[in-house]
Amino acid sequence: MKITILVSLFPPKWLAGTEIATYYMAGHLAQRGHEVHVITSWDEDLPKESYEKDFYIHRLPRVRVRFVGAFIFWADIVRTIQKISPDIVHVQSLGIAFPAVISKKILRIPYVVWGQGSDVYLPDWFTKLTSKTIIKNADVAIALTSNMKEAMKNIYNRNMAVVPNGIELEGYIDKSPMQKVKCREKIVLFVGRLHPIKGVRYLLLAMQILHEEMPDTRLILVGDGEERNYLEELTDRLEMRGWVDFVGKVPHQRIPDYMCKADIFVLPSLSESFGIVNIEAMAFGLPVVATRVGGLPDIIEEGVNGYLVEAKKPDQIAHKLLILLQNNTIMEEISINNIRKAEMFTWDKVTETIEGIYLDCLNNRPCRIRNEAKARLRHTE
């Protein structure tokens, strides 16, 4: 099968959840014998056409002129889709889906759209304007969680699939949590953008409360962003510099180096679609304390995988951290639960589900298109 994936941004420069998920999904689809083409925006110093990890990448320049630049970019995407002539277009986010609608109308190529988070919960004005048309015309609409499914159905009520993002366990298996060196100092870890939506300021306030009860705790913040200066200033004002580490942005492949040293993972977001970083933490057996927002309750069962707290409540975060850090039995039980649960989210399993969605989608297309796609699939086998 020939598959085209649309995504606004892509590694190596961009390493947020959607970008990393797209990278691994493309690679696993290619490993399953499909011809995969990723269409994304061009980043300086990167080739506009490349072949990496068994799939093709087409990086298209964006003209930085409001409105006009977007339309030129979409037109380039449609032309690239026409050139590739795929069996199906997979769109990673409502925000970049409009070219798929156009290619379906003009080129008769079916498309699948997968809601990824802010495009559903915090859309920009144009996504708000077009999302109903995008979801309505998609051959299949997918949500990451049941919560997101309901949010997407509020935009346009139709049948939808729920498929979570996956995790690449390869970098985690050889760093077993059982190999962690036990030490007196307890480490609380956050990994993500230092952006107001991530709620890190409330984690800092929680750590101040926790530190009064347990002075042998340290907070490690992995990531960078526009709120970093404010957070560092807040850390100084709270006199916490001695036990709060700002690591900054690190390559995704180095995240396991920090997770294998941690005791607990915290995600204090004000809004979160799925939070694949939670699953990555679970793969290390880390209990998770996260906010009860978006799709996080779909991942974290209270007392089984960790604890859920209300957003903007540092006292609740501190309380749950204290429960975990003062009870080794609870920590060990949750650790075992989380290692097992992480295995349910491997990219092998997720990609197999996505592949099935593609085939079901093509089976509902006109015979000529369906037969051509099946012939290509037989050729790859």
Rank of each mutant, 00 (worst) to 15 (best):
K349G: 06
I339Q: 13
L169Y: 01
V89Q: 02
G294T: 09
D174P: 04
Q253P: 02
K180W: 02
R32M: 15
T145G: 07
E272S: 09
L325Q: 01
S335N: 12
A75S: 10
K180H: 04
V277M: 05
G117S: 05
R64V: 08
I197F: 04
I354W: 12
G27M: 13
M152G: 02
L9K: 14
R254H: 12
I109L: 05
E52R: 15
K175A: 08
P366T: 10
E310R: 11
E332A: 14
A161N: 13
A262K: 05
S93Y: 00
A161L: 13
I209W: 04
L194Y: 02
G294F: 06
E355S: 14
S335C: 09
Y111A: 03
Y111C: 04
I102Y: 06
E52A: 12
T380N: 12
R62A: 06
F265Y: 15
I255M: 05
K349Q: 08
W243L: 02
V162D: 11
I323P: 04
R378E: 15
G171Y: 11
Y24T: 00
I84H: 09
I39Y: 03
H37Q: 11
A318E: 05
I109K: 02
V112S: 04
L221R: 05
M259Y: 01
L308D: 11
G199W: 00
I102R: 08
F284S: 02
L122Y: 08
I106A: 09
T235D: 05
A262F: 05
G356H: 10
T4I: 09
V68L: 15
R201K: 15
D236K: 14
R218Q: 07
F345N: 01
R66C: 03
S103H: 01
E280I: 06
L107V: 11
A26K: 02
E49L: 14
I39M: 09
R237V: 06
L322P: 00
Y156R: 09
P196C: 12
P123G: 08
Q253G: 06
M25T: 15
A290Q: 03
K83S: 14
P297V: 00
D139T: 13
Q208N: 13
R218S: 01
L325C: 08
V112Q: 05
A26N: 03
N327H: 13
C183W: 06
L238G: 01
G223D: 01
V289D: 02
R228S: 00
A290R: 03
K149V: 02
R32E: 14
T130D: 02
P164D: 11
V277L: 05
T145Q: 07
I134R: 08
N363A: 10
R370E: 12
T80P: 03
A138C: 10
V304W: 06
F274Q: 03
R368C: 11
D298I: 00
F126W: 11
K104R: 15
A21L: 06
N159C: 08
I142G: 02
L231R: 11
D216S: 13
S146V: 09
V293S: 01
P123A: 08
P177S: 07
F73C: 05
P256Q: 10
V181A: 10
P297F: 00
H34F: 01
Y307E: 00
L107K: 12
G295K: 01
H58Q: 13
V188Q: 03
R32I: 07
E227P: 03
H252I: 13
I339D: 01
G294K: 08
P251K: 10
I334N: 09
G294E: 04
E52M: 14
E239L: 10
H90I: 01
E185L: 07
L359A: 09
W42L: 15
K104L: 04
